[in-house]
């Protein structure tokens, strides 16, 4: 498949760590190893603004469902909550180690982020209610989960804010009950670190991207392993297309290391690769589908964010069944 010429977004000075669309898909948020998370117009690639205040590489970024707030986590051990429109800092959560993943809940009220396991500090996942000013001001989470032995490398809210799914650097996937803060299920389907977890449109399935060169599809409620997508490189990021939700959904995976910096498209059900594209001069660290499913964006180690519009071939292509 050949994509139309992508729009290159050059604004970051260092490699991109994560990209996310808002729910409508008109805005694209990116975090990078420089200190300025950025928001762009997805339609033309115009830079709308930056969220300045971090003092280290920003590892993760998220936006709530109505696009009013942005959450970022960085290597300076800070997790910050921003006002999207003004770029003002609303809250600053201080921690003992770098913030690896962060996310808004379905309702957008609660936020979650995880910290790295370093220098005797264990890896923790912390939960705040943004409506409670005291929690924000006093840096006091309403819940704290301590990951037993391995570091959380990716995480997402699930089951309408009742559960959390975390991927660990030893390949484990855990399901947490957020009422009690206890682990419900732990599975070892992967053998190496889980780089990314992304839910599908309905939040009932999720796809993982793993260093063991596979990407896998799971049932978000049961953690049942459904499909495996094999590549020959570690997978940095994976996403499920929102467009073909009835029969042909696509999983996009990106691989890194010596050459082969490609985004591959797999048929979600048949596990077969049907398309791929290049576009970065280095590993691709993050991939996201536009909510309308007609384009997808990639953020690479080369510092570029690229918005790729699919060509007609992509939409016409269908597996013979």
């Amino acid at each position: 498949m050949s994509c139309m010429k992508p729009i290159s977004l050059l604004g970051h000075e260092r490699s991109i760590t994560q990209i996310k669309y808002n729910r409508e898909g008109d805005l694209l948020f990116s975090s990078a190893k420089d200190t300025s998370p950025t928001v762009w117009y997805s339609i033309n690639g115009e830079r709308l603004g930056t969220f300045d205040g971090h003092g280290g590489a920003v590892w993760c970024i998220d936006v709530n469902w109505d696009s009013t707030k942005v959450l970022t986590g960085a290597a300076d051990s800070l997790c910050k909550l921003w006002d999207t429109q003004t770029g003002k800092e609303l809250a600053n959560f201080e921690n003992g180690s770098a913030v690896r993943t962060c996310g808004f809940s379905f309702s957008g009220h609660d936020v979650m982020y995880s910290t790295d396991k370093t220098m005797g500090r264990s890896c923790e996942v912390l939960f705040f209610d943004t409506r409670d000013q005291s929690q924000l001001e006093n840096n006091s989470p309403y819940m704290k989960i301590t990951a037993p032995d391995s570091k959380v490398t990716s995480a997402t809210w699930s089951n309408l804010d009742k559960e959390l799914i975390s991927g660990h650097d030893n390949g484990a996937l855990c399901l947490w009950d957020l009422k009690t803060g206890s682990m419900v299920e732990e599975i070892m389907e992967h053998t190496k670190g889980v780089n990314d977890i992304q839910l599908n449109k309905t939040g009932q399935l999720f796809v993982t991207a793993c260093k063991d060169s596979t990407s896998k599809l799971f049932n978000a409620t049961t953690l049942e392993h459904l499909k495996t997508y094999k590549t020959d490189r570690p997978v940095n990021s994976a996403a499920i297309s929102p467009l073909y939700d009835h029969e042909a959904m696509d999983v996009t995976t990106t691989s890194s290391r010596i050459g082969k910096f490609e985004t591959k498209f797999f048929h979600m059900i048949f596990e077969e690769e049907f398309a791929r594209f290049k576009g970065h001069f280095g590993p691709i660290n993050s991939v996201a589908f536009h909510p309308d499913g007609k384009s997808c964006s990639t953020g690479g180690e080369d510092g570029f964010v690229k918005i790729n519009y699919f060509d007609s071939q992509y939409f016409e292509f269908d597996f013979e069944v």
């Binding site: 729910r23 409508e24 898909g25 469902w65 109505d66 309702s107 957008g108 929102p242 909510p291 309308d292």
Partner: peptide, 10 residues
């Protein structure tokens, strides 16, 4: 959870 806004469809 989302204050009565239907977000089921994009």
């Amino acid at each position: 959870l989302r204050g009565g806004v239907d977000t089921d469809r994009f």
